[in-house]
Design a protein around this nucleic acid. Structure first.
Ligand SMILES: [Mn+2]
Ligand SMILES: [Mn+2]
Ligand SMILES: [Zn+2]
Ligand SMILES: [Zn+2]
Lengths: 133, 133
DNA sequence: CGATTAAAGGATAAAAATTATTATTCATTT
DNA sequence: AAATGAATAATAATTTTTATCCTTTAATCG
């Protein structure tokens, strides 16, 4: 398991046990909601406050250490920041996975056609995963 | 201005003045948040309850009369259900506009490559609009 | 129409989610 | 090891959303 101490520090975040745990959990789960994160954290830190979760998640968001993924009909999930990518989400089991798609063609089309300077593309494809099919 | 009485009824919703107003506002604004919707409604119905807004929005969502659009870093907005489309959102002024893009190629690629049965694609391109550029 | 009835609205309380405050504890620097 | 600024836990406060209860009203039918 990777040690995120230096990564946290490089984002101007002190490497506390709680933050290292949050990071490990994000790494292990890929995508996780505040609620689930708290459920996992409380097992390691029996007296952790939900406010600590929120504060850290918000701080990490501000520092772009993590990013949020808003999903249709489901709670927002968070993940460690990685290369730009899209998501598939299963309506049956709730699974969320990364997918890498080239959206350049679309971005270029919109840029010129709409005269809109695109800086980010958030795409979520929902449907039924292979396990649930 | 279109009269939505029959449209509401066809979705099994009684055509009350409040609902007709909500519908008109959605039509006029295109995309609107709960908060803004309430601000506009209170001008017409000085004693309307925020709960009525929520109840109606949730009902209309269930009946697919309207749909919600989740946006990065901004509050969820709602719009009248129309043909499937994507959105551009300006990070400066908050503008949200519809765009029509053919995502079939992408959907097909993902379907086969990931063995995932796609039923919906939610795409939001954020950046800077022409007015703010 | 005018009565009937199921549904909707308004007021309000309650619950859930998020943010703010503050004393205490801890990570980092010296 | 001590100092210090930041993070945590506990808690309160705020915001957002849903539930309840009673009144009002839209739709139906004679
Ligand atoms: Mn992801
Ligand atoms: Mn739209
Ligand atoms: Zn599934
Ligand atoms: Zn703009």
């Amino acid at each position: 398991m990777k040690n995120y101490t230096d990564t946290l520090r490089s984002h101007n975040l002190k490497a506390t046990p709680q933050r290292l745990a949050i990071t490990d959990i994000l790494y292990a789960h890929g995508h996780i909601s505040i609620e689930s994160l708290y459920d996992v954290m409380i097992k390691k830190f029996s007296s952790i406050s939900l406010a600590t979760i929120y504060k850290n998640i918000n701080l990490m968001l501000e520092n772009s250490f993590i990013q949020e993924v808003k999903l249709p009909n489901q709670k927002t999930v968070y993940e460690l920041t990685k290369h730009s990518h899209s998501h598939i989400m299963c309506d049956r089991c709730g699974m969320v996975n990364d997918i890498t798609i080239d959206l350049n063609a679309i971005v270029n089309t919109v840029s010129t056609l709409e005269n809109f300077e695109v800086s980010k593309a958030d795409l979520v494809l929902s449907g039924v995963c292979k396990n649930c099919a």
